[in-house]
C-alpha cells in the first residue's frame, strides 16, 4: 500500500503552549483515517500543517511525496481542505457557492459532476437557496461538495461533524465511505469517539500527543482489562458507590451502564453484586462487555496521568 501522508516528528508551539509534541504518522493511500481527540488536543494545528497553511517548528510532512513547505503550490491543487467550522459564503446561493469553488480550482461543476453527484444531487433541489438558509446537515453536504469539486487526491476534513445531529452525522459517514471508490485518501478529525469505528484506521490524540494508531478493532481488542457493564436501579449513586469499592480499577458511565474494571485478574460478579446490595442497590445487572474506542481513550488518558 502506498503511503499518502508521511508525518515525521512534527512539533508546533504557540508561545509557551505546545500544540503538537513531535508526532509522527503515516496515512495510506485510499484509506479513511480518523484523528480522534477532544478540543484543544492539536487536531486543527495538524490539519493546517497538512493543508500547507501552517509551518511546523520542526519535523517534516509530505503528502503524495510532495513536501508541504517546498511544494505547497503543487500540493494545493491536489488537496481538498475543509477547515473546522467552515462556513460557506452565506449570502451566495448553493449553486453560486459550488460554481465559485469549481472555478477556484479551474474546473466546472459539469466537468466534475460524477464525483460530487452522490452528495450534490441531494442538495441540488435547493440550488437557488442562500447557503445561510440551509439546515446544518445540508450546509455540511454543500461544504463537502465544494471541497470535492476539483477531484482532490487527499481530502482533509477538520471536524466536519461537530455540532451536527446524529442522523446527519451517520449520513455524512456513509458519503465518505462511498467516496473511497474514487481512491481518495480521507483524513478526518472528530471529537465524537463513536465515529472512530467508521474509519479504516485512527489516531487517538490528546494534548498534542498521539496516544495510539491502529485500526479501530485492534485498538478495542487491546483494551488491557476485562470490562464489565454494571447497571442498577439507582443511576445517580451507582458511580460513587462503585468508586468506593476496594478493587475498582476504573468506573465510568457509558450510556445507561457503568463500565467497570477490577484491579484483580480473578473477578466474580457475585462479590461486586453483594457489595452493591449492601449499598442499597436493587435490580443489579453485571455482565462482561467489549470496550469501545471511548473506553480505550479513557484508559490511555489515565495511563498518561
Amino acid at each position: 500500500m502506498q503511503v499518502a501522508v508521511k508525518i515525521e516528528n512534527i512539533r508546533k508551539t504557540y508561545g509557551d503552549i505546545v500544540a503538537l509534541k513531535d508526532i509522527s504518522l503515516r496515512i495510506n493511500e485510499g484509506e479513511i483515517f480518523g484523528i480522534i481527540g477532544p478540543d484543544g488536543s492539536g487536531k486543527t494545528s495538524l490539519f493546517r500543517i497538512l493543508a500547507t497553511l501552517l509551518l511546523a517548528d520542526s519535523g517534516t510532512v509530505s503528502l503524495l511525496g510532495l513536501d508541504v513547505v517546498k511544494d505547497y503550490k503543487a500540493l494545493r491543487k491536489m488537496l481538498g481542505y475543509m477547515p473546522g467550522r467552515f462556513s460557506l459564503y452565506q449570502d451566495l446561493t448553493v449553486e453560486e457557492n459550488i460554481n465559485l469553488f469549481a472555478s477556484l480550482f479551474g474546473t466546472t461543476v459539469a466537468a466534475q459532476y460524477d464525483i460530487i453527484k452522490d452528495i450534490y444531487s441531494q442538495i441540488e433541489p435547493f440550488k437557488d437557496r442562500r447557503a445561510g438558509k440551509l439546515s446544518g446537515g445540508m450546509k455540511q453536504k454543500l461544504a463537502l461538495s465544494c471541497v470535492l469539486v476539483h477531484k482532490p487526491r487527499i481530502l482533509l476534513l477538520d471536524e466536519p461533524t461537530t455540532g451536527v445531529d446524529p442522523i446527519s452525522r451517520k449520513e455524512f459517514w456513509g458519503i465518505l465511505k462511498r467516496l473511497k471508490a474514487w481512491n481518495i485518501t480521507i483524513v478526518v478529525s472528530t471529537p465524537y469517539m463513536d465515529e472512530a469505528m467508521q474509519c479504516d484506521r485512527v489516531a487517538l490524540i490528546q494534548d498534542g500527543n498521539i496516544m495510539s494508531v491502529d485500526t479501530p478493532d485492534n485498538i478495542v481488542n487491546e483494551f488491557p482489562a476485562r470490562l464489565y457493564a454494571v447497571k442498577t436501579s439507582n443511576k445517580h449513586t451507582i458511580l460513587t458507590d462503585l468508586r468506593d469499592f476496594e478493587y475498582t480499577g476504573s468506573a465510568f458511565a457509558f450510556g445507561d451502564h457503568i463500565h467497570f474494571t477490577d484491579v484483580r485478574t480473578e473477578f466474580t460478579n457475585d462479590e461486586l453484586k453483594a457489595y452493591l446490595e449492601e449499598k442499597g442497590h436493587t435490580d443489579i445487572d453485571i455482565s462482561e462487555t467489549t470496550a469501545t474506542i471511548e473506553d480505550c481513550f479513557i484508559e490511555l488518558m489515565r495511563k498518561k496521568i
Partner: peptide, 19 residues
C-alpha cells in the same frame, strides 16, 4: 450542549456535577 468537544473523562466529570 454543555459538553461539546471535551475529552471523555472531563465529560463524565461534568455529568457528575450535574447529578
Amino acid at each position: 450542549e454543555p459538553t461539546g468537544g471535551v475529552d471523555p473523562i472531563t465529560r463524565r466529570q461534568f455529568w457528575e456535577s450535574i447529578y
